[in-house]
Design a protein around this nucleic acid. Structure first.
Lengths: 142, 142, 142, 142
DNA sequence: TTTT
DNA sequence: TTTT
C-alpha cells in the first residue's frame, strides 16, 4: 500500500515531455500549505513534485497552469541515483493515479485549454529510449 | 490536505534521538513494495523515510525493529537545504500521525519491547536547540 | 488505520447542533462525483455524510453552505442501531479530522461568514446528555 | 477524489458471487479497531463492508478467511434503495482498488489457498443480468 | 462481527 | 442531494 493525496496549487506551468516511443509524461510541483503556521506566524508549504503519465498527463499540460488548484492521488516514488561526485541522491515524487482540477483558470468555469499549441514533442536532446519501459517505468525523462 | 498512507517493512532498526529540550523523535525507513514487478520480473520497492515525534516515536523505538511491518499515516514533508557545494537539496519524509504495528516480533503475539535499554538520550554531538520549535518543527535532529 | 479523503460539494447548508454539555457538532453531506459516467452518459455521485466536532465544526457551519467545495479527511464510522421494527440498521459517515475549504462563496476570496446569526444552540428537543461522551462519542445528536 | 484506506481483520470468510455474465465479485466485512477505547476501556471497532471485483476478488476468496488481516484501498460507495416499507435506505461499502494481504493464515508464510473448491458459480437464484454493466456497475449481486 |  |  502506497497512497498519497494532496491538495494544493501548481508553482509553475506544467512541463510535458515524451519518452522516445512517444509516451507522454507531465511534471509539475504542487505547493501544499501546512495546517499550522511557523513561529513567525508565516504560512509554510511543502513543495511536492508530481508526475502524470499518458493521456492524463496531456490533459494536465493542456488545462493546468501556474496557480491552478488540484487534488492529486498517487504513489510516493523514491528514485535513487548517483550524483556526479559519486554520492547517492534521492528524488521523491508522487506518480499520479488521479488529478482532479479544482480550478483551472477560474473556479466555476469549465477549464479552458491553456493555449493552442502544437502536439507536445520532446526536443531531440531530451529524447530517450523507452523500449524497455512500460507503465512502471523508472527512467523518467526529467 | 497532505496525507500519505504506506504499508511496508522497516529496513533497519529505528533510531531515537531527542531535541535539546528533550522532545523525542524516532526515524526509520519503510520499504514499500510496488504493485508490479519490473521488466526482469524483480520486485521493486520504494524506500520511504519516516519520522515520528514524542511518545509515539518512543513506542516505535521500543517495539519496532528491522523487518517489522507497519502501516504509517502522515504528511509528506519536503525540507530544502543548502549542500556544502552550495547547491540546493531536498529531503522528503513522512511525518507520521499514526503508526500501526502489524507485526513486531511475530504476528499474533503482543509486541515485545525490543530490548531493555536506558532512556534515550541524544549524544551531545547531536543535541541541538529546540527552544523555538513547537510540533511543527522544521529543524529535525537528523 | 482508517482514513478516508473525499473532495466534493455540500448538498445542503450544514447543520450545527450541540451535545447537552455544549460540544458543537456539525453535519453535512458531500456529493462526490464518480470518475466515470454511467451507461447513459450521466455523471454519478456518492452522497457521503460527514460530521465535524468542536471548533472545526463551528467553522464549517459558519463558512460553508450548499454547493461549497471541500476536501475532507477523517475516519469511516459505522454505527449500528435497532430500527423501530426490530431490524438492525447501519449508519455510515466520515468523522472529520480536517476540512479544507476549497471555495466558500468564491474561490480566491477569503471565506465569508455565511450569515450573522446567534451563537448556535440546539433546541431543547434536540439536546441530549453527553456527560459520558468524550471525543470518541458514539451517541451523536443526529 | 474519493479514497478510503483501512487496515483490519475479516469478520467472516469472504463470499464470492458472479454476475450473470460471469464477472466475479467478492464481498467481506473488515473490522477496523478504533484508536481509542471507549469509556469502559473496551476496544471499539468499525465494521466496514468491502467489495472486490474480478480477478482480485477471486484472489481474495481464495486466500482470505475469517480473521485474515488486510489493507484495503478503494472508493466509498453509497447506494440508495427503497426499502419494502417505502422508506429510503443507504448501503455504504468500499469498492476496492487494492487489497493487500497482511497475513492469511500465518504472517511470514506465503498465503495458502483457503480450500480446493470448484470454480465459483452463483446459484441460479442469485444470477442476474449484467449486460449493461461494465466495471462501474451499480447493480451488485448482494 | 475481527484482531491483539 | 452537489458541482462542472
Amino acid at each position: 500500500m502506497n497512497k498519497a493525496i494532496i491538495v494544493g496549487n501548481l508553482t509553475r506551468d506544467p512541463e510535458l515531455r515524451a519518452t522516445g516511443s512517444g509516451i507522454s509524461v507531465c511534471s509539475f510541483t504542487v505547493a501544499v500549505n501546512r495546517r499550522f503556521k511557523d513561529q513567525n506566524g508565516e504560512t509554510q508549504a511543502d513543495f511536492i513534485p508530481v508526475v502524470v503519465w499518458r493521456q492524463q498527463g496531456e490533459n494536465c499540460a493542456k488545462y493546468l497552469s501556474k496557480g491552478s488548484k488540484v487534488a492529486v492521488c498517487g504513489a510516493i516514488q523514491v528514485r535513487s541515483y548517483d550524483a556526479q561526485d559519486g554520492s547517492k541522491r534521492y528524488a521523491t515524487e508522487i506518480v499520479a493515479d488521479e488529478v482532479q482540477f479544482l480550478n483551472s483558470r477560474g473556479e466555476g468555469a469549465a477549464p479552458q485549454p491553456r493555449q493552442e499549441r502544437p502536439a507536445p514533442k520532446a526536443p531531440a536532446s531530451m529524447q530517450f529510449d523507452d523500449d524497455l519501459h512500460p507503465v512502471e517505468d523508472d527512467d523518467l525523462p526529467f
